[in-house]
Design a protein around this nucleic acid. Structure first.
Length: 280
DNA sequence: GTCCAGGTCGTCG
DNA sequence: CGACGACATGGA
């Protein structure tokens, strides 16, 4: 993968219009990434094959007219087909803390364990750090690693262990990428790794394995299920059984095989329009 | 100072 | 199963 692509790999959703800021002019069409042309790669990465208009079931806009009005401002939001390992580690950093701290952890991981790369962009030299390789995290000293994980030693240990599982093949993305693998089975395979529960597993499936049917239920999703869709279950504290119930409820409201993708638009719409949060 | 952040896990009744 | 605390920090 060419160096400049690392500037795109952020493990966070990006609005299409923001992404254009990255300017693809620097990329030559003759260059290949994993045997594919640049335009093919971008189309896949930005999930341009996914038709946003078919994300929500027919009748949804009529059933939720006010919500639909808010949501229409989010149709340019794309889920990215991101690297499995990056997604795995990034979401293992996302437990009960704010987006700001999650980004900080990922940034520190890159600065501490990633490769330094300087690229020329619009005539200026920019220094970037790649995401750490599985090997570098597998071999990382736990104390140094926990400095990157919000000083959370347990999280650092879990990440270290996950990296080693990735290295020895126990955690194999090619095995998990099987589209015929039922979601509950995929989820339980991911949950064998300490530090990964239902929510993180669903995030890894959704963002790192292209499983757009996976529907992660977090604190925000729980809130909008109660507020927009009047789920009484969503008002109660989240437990493993209730997680599965909410997951099931969401599939009756949304298109089951695209529930996660649709849910992601709802997620950002909720955060910005209702909660008035500015962070993506 | 209090509450809440893209949770998970162990323990106790 | 449900409730609660530990893990950790920072922004509102």
């Amino acid at each position: 993968m060419p160096d400049y692509f690392y500037s795109l790999v952020d493990s966070t959703p990006i609005l299409l219009k923001q992404l254009t800021v990255c300017s693809f002019e620097v990329i030559s069409e003759s260059e290949k990434i994993n045997g594919r042309s640049i335009s093919e790669y971008i189309r896949d990465y930005l999930t341009l094959d996914i038709d946003i208009n078919r994300l929500f079931p027919s009748g949804f806009s009529e059933h939720y007219p006010e919500l639909w009005k808010l949501l229409s401002g989010y149709f340019s939001l794309r889920i990215l087909r991101q690297d499995f390992f990056e997604t795995l580690i990034t979401f293992m950093c996302a437990q009960g803390i704010g987006m700001h701290l999650i980004r900080k952890q990922v940034t520190m991981l890159c600065h501490t364990f990633g490769e330094k790369r300087s690229i020329l962009f619009n005539g200026k030299s920019i220094t970037l750090y790649s995401f750490p390789t599985p090997l570098s995290l597998a071999e990382a000293d736990i104390v140094m690693l926990s400095r990157c994980t919000n000083n959370n030693r347990i999280r650092a240990t879990n990440i270290s262990r996950a990296a080693r599982s990735f290295m020895d093949g126990a955690l194999d993305p090619e095995l998990l990428r099987n589209p015929h693998l039922p979601l509950p089975e995929l989820r339980s395979m991911l949950c064998r790794n300490p530090g990964i529960g239902y929510k993180i597993a669903d995030c890894i499936a959704l963002f790192g394995l292209g499983r757009f049917d996976a529907f992660p239920v977090d604190t925000h999703v729980k809130q909008y299920l109660a507020y927009w869709f009047h789920s009484s279950n969503a008002l109660k504290p989240l437990s493993p059984v209730r997680y599965l119930e909410l997951d099931c409820e969401a599939r009756t409201i949304l298109n089951p095989d695209m529930a996660g993708y649709a849910g992601h638009l709802l997620f950002h719409c909720w955060r910005r329009e209702i909660k008035k949060l500015r962070t993506f």
